[in-house]
């Protein structure tokens, strides 16, 4: 393997020049989001630099508590983001989403590190990057599922009320929408698996190869992480919706739909 070429600051800063192209195209297409692009780039850079410092410190002084704290921060950030994007969720639904993301994410992470790789769950070098991918994708999946489910609830209100008036149970009425939302959330992950390796080399694999890992090892990790992500998205969305939708009706089978 060739040794990795270290980027100096000047080389690194050249990449930002590409953003000028994006800004020109946005201006030409009358997309008034240049502020968002700049803010996004700034925040992404700052957050990653900070993450780099923190990760370096953790890797140099490994301790289970640091790993736990980092993963906990990821989980809390993801939950906050989901809840902020879905203010229509009632309190029980919020708990369902939060617990589902936490427990399913940790379960997949534990299985991957302890059983598949055979390293400790508290090993920061493995656990932190894997947690980022698993929890991040589960967060995206849940957000998409909740968006789809909420759209079904608002656009299908008349259907739901009619069926309720007729004597159908809320479970019968809501389950088709729950299943549709799960399907919608899973599609992007499954589609990305179809094109993987042909259309694109995924980020994690690219990163590993660039940093000197042999492609065959990088590929095995990539396959494993893709399967883990699919399982995490499916489990987290399934649990969030299946425990959450029950909070939309009471014991008297009356619907309490969000406006």
């Amino acid at each position: 393997m060739n040794e990795i070429i270290q980027l100096n600051i000047l080389q690194f800063s050249l990449i930002y020049l590409l953003l000028i192209l994006v800004l020109i195209l946005m201006k030409k297409s009358k997309i008034s989001q240049s502020k968002l692009l700049l803010l996004g780039t700034f925040r992404m850079s700052l957050q990653l630099v900070l993450a780099g410092f923190i990760l370096t410190a953790i890797f140099e002084n490994p301790h289970p508590l640091f790993t736990i704290a980092y993963v906990a921060a990821m989980v809390i950030f993801s939950i906050t983001r989901i809840l902020r994007k879905n203010p229509w969720l009632n309190s029980s639904f919020r708990w369902s989403v939060s617990l589902s993301l936490t427990l399913t994410g940790l379960f997949i992470l534990g299985y991957f590190t302890q059983i598949v790789i055979g390293v400790s769950l508290f090993n920061p070098q493995y656990t932190i990057p894997l947690a980022g991918m698993i929890i991040g994708n589960a967060m995206t999946g849940i957000t998409l599922a909740l968006k789809t489910f909420h759209e079904s609830l608002t656009s299908g209100r008349n259907r739901m009320e009619t069926l309720l008036n007729l004597g159908a149970s809320p479970k019968q009425i809501l389950l088709p929408d729950v299943n549709r939302a799960l399907e919608t959330a899973l599609l992007p992950t499954m589609n990305s698996m179809l094109g993987m390796g042909i259309i694109a080399l995924p980020g994690m694999m690219t990163g590993q190869i660039l940093s000197g890992t042999s492609p065959s090892t990088a590929i095995l990790y990539q396959i494993a992480i893709m399967v883990a992500i699919t399982a995490a998205v499916c489990l987290a969305v399934f649990c969030s919706l299946h425990f959450g939708y029950r909070s939309l009706y009471n014991q008297r089978n009356q619907l309490n739909l969000p406006r």
């Binding site: 259907r159 008036n165 007729l166 004597g167 008297r252």
Partner: peptide, 23 residues
């Protein structure tokens, strides 16, 4: 009404609402 089984009651007392819904 609150002591009756809700689904059985609704099947016996059906409400045809003003806003029509058809599949």
């Amino acid at each position: 009404v609150r002591e009756l089984d809700p689904l059985t009651h609704r099947r016996e007392v059906s409400l045809v609402s003003q806003s029509v819904f058809l599949f």
